[in-house]
Amino acid sequence: MDTCYVETPIGFAKIVGNNKGISSVSIIDKPQNTSYSIPEVLLDCVSQLKAYFNNQLTTFDLKLNLEGTDFQKKVWKQLKKIPYGKTISYLELAKQLGDPKTIRAAASANGKNPLWIIIPCHRVIGTDGSLTGYAGGLHRKQWLLNHESEYKQQTLF
């Protein structure tokens, strides 16, 4: 597996993959190693992430190499269907999977998503509209949702 670190507006993206596809994208505060060159198999992912952060990309088109249970993969596939700039609740996610009783299992699979941003787990919120659970921290989840919002927040100072 090849690994690289790319600086983003909300931390460093750690990207892991090989010729079978991207297997992990996570966010960290500081990389253990700095990437001076990007492995060829990761170039497309780096390019698409940069385009996303520059408001030039709303849907990722990458070869993925996911490892997880069948249920986790089913949840991750459903997450990819959430449109850019939109959110759904964990309950809605469970209903889309065919059984509202799977809400806890769906939330758990959402939390184990290995492809931060690529599979948009940040677009899932609490039924009451609250931000809940995000491996990268709720401040990053809020940033991503604001970034994707058609109504950008302006600062006064």
Rank of each mutant, 00 (worst) to 15 (best):
L66F: 02
Q48F: 07
L144Y: 05
P31N: 13
D99H: 06
I117V: 15
K81R: 14
D29L: 09
H122S: 01
K73E: 13
K30D: 14
E67Q: 12
G98M: 10
T87S: 04
N18S: 07
K80S: 13
L49A: 07
S47F: 10
N18C: 03
D44G: 07
Q56S: 13
F53Y: 07
G126I: 00
L144P: 00
F12L: 03
T87D: 08
G85C: 08
Q56A: 15
P114F: 01
Y134L: 10
D44R: 10
I10R: 12
T59M: 09
D99C: 13
S26P: 03
T8E: 12
M1Q: 11
S26Y: 06
N54Q: 15
P100Y: 11
E148K: 09
T155G: 08
I118S: 02
Q154P: 05
G21E: 07
I125T: 10
L79H: 00
P9W: 15
G133Q: 11
K74N: 10
A107I: 12
V16R: 06
R104T: 15
V41R: 10
L43K: 14
I103T: 05
H139K: 08
Y151S: 05
C4M: 00
W116Q: 03
G98K: 03
R104H: 14
S108V: 06
T58I: 13
F71C: 05
L131G: 05
T127F: 12
L115H: 04
I119H: 03
E148S: 11
N18H: 07
L144G: 05
T3G: 13
A105P: 01
A109K: 03
L64V: 09
P100T: 09
A13T: 00
I118E: 00
N110W: 12
I82H: 07
A94S: 14
L43V: 12
T59Y: 08
S37M: 13
K86I: 08
I22M: 01
W76L: 01
N19T: 12
Q154D: 14
G85V: 10
P120A: 04
K73V: 13
S108T: 08
G136H: 00
Y84Q: 01
Q153R: 12
E40I: 00
K77C: 13
G98L: 00
P31W: 10
L131A: 04
P39M: 02
N33P: 01
M1A: 15
K95Y: 07
A105Q: 05
L79M: 00
N55G: 07
Y52K: 11
N110C: 15
G136S: 15
C4R: 01
L131C: 08
Y151G: 02
N33G: 00
T59Q: 14
D2K: 07
S149W: 06
F12T: 02
K101F: 14
D2Q: 14
V16S: 09
G85I: 09
I88K: 02
T34C: 14
Y5Q: 06
R104V: 13
N113C: 06
Y36E: 12
G21S: 04
W116H: 04
I38G: 02
L144E: 05
C121L: 11
S23T: 09
V16T: 08
R140Y: 08
M1Y: 15
G133H: 06
Q72R: 04
L57V: 02
L156F: 11
L79W: 00
S47W: 08
Y5M: 07
P83R: 09
S47G: 12
S47A: 11
I125P: 01
I15G: 07
L79I: 03
F60Y: 09
A105N: 14
